[in-house]
Amino acid sequence: VLITMSSDKEEVQVTLEDQKKINLFAKKNGNLNEIETELEEIKKALQNIEDAGDDLLLLEDEDSEAIPYQLGEVFIQHNLEETQGLLEKEKDKYEQRMKQLKEEAGEIESMMKELKVQLYAKFGDNINLEA
C-alpha cells in the first residue's frame, strides 16, 4: 500500500488526529500483510498434509506398520490408522488457525476501510491510500 500525500494542491492542515489515523492505517496494513503471509504458509502445510495422506495410501502393507511421524526433532512410529488420525488432527488445527486469521483479517479490513473514508473525506486528492 502506498500512502502518498501531495502538496501542490490547496493547503490542508494535517492535525495530530489525522497523523494518528494515517499511522494506524499503515500499522494495520502491516498486520494484514503478516496475516497473509501466515495464511500462505498454512495453505502449503495443508497441501503437504493432503499429499502425505495420498502417499500413505500407496504404501505396501509391510511398510504400513511403522510409519515415522515427525514430532519436534524426532520421528515416532505409528501404524497406518494412527498416522491418518494424527494427520487429521493436524489438519483440524491448521484449519482452526486459518479461520481465526481470516476473521482477524476481516476486522482489520473494515477498520482500514473506515479510516480510508475518513481520510479521503478530509484530504481528497491530496492523499493516496491504495495498494
Binding site: 502445510a45 499429499d51 502425505a52 500413505l56 511398510d63 510409519i67 511421524y69 515427525q70 493436524e90
Partner: peptide, 11 residues
Amino acid sequence: VYKLTGPVLVK
C-alpha cells in the same frame, strides 16, 4: 528411502 511429506516419512 523415505520422503518427508508434511510430518510423515513415507517410504
